[in-house]
Amino acid sequence: MTHPGKKKQHADEQAQYQRLVAVHVPKPPLVRNLVAAFVVGGLISVLGQAVLNAFMSTGMALDEASAPTLATMILISAVLTGLSIYHHVGEFAGAGAAVPITGFANTIVAAAMDFKREGFVLGMGAKMFIIAGPVIVYGIVAGVLVSAIRWWTGM
């Protein structure tokens, strides 16, 4: 058993070391990262707007046009992922590439490409949603819950 006094001393040593590390660790280039995320995320949204407008020009309402718009964005991202281009966008733009639906599609395609080497059932099939899975899980949990509340309360 560790002596309690010794434990405290070790915790102090750790805290002291972490302060030393904080001095040496370079800060993330926040301004550069923010600008890159803003511009790339914005441009992907503009592309989405162009697709949305194209669908709406055929007479679809906004609600009707949203699903095919997202599907088209997913198609573009999937192809770019297959061509090994999308992860370069991610490296450059961080959240600018991760937050749009194109980033969501990238996680699914990238996982599928990677894990197929462990087989198409237990590899690709099982692990396709290894990163996108939580987004769907919590999207459904939160989405159904808030809609249930809104529906019941008749807001």
Partner: peptide, 17 residues
């Protein structure tokens, strides 16, 4: 990378460290 971190083609930004 695939054992410790993420699939190769995933959009991930490398940290400063």
């Amino acid at each position: 990378e695939r054992q410790f971190r993420y699939p190769i083609e995933l959009n991930i930004q490398r940290k400063a460290t």
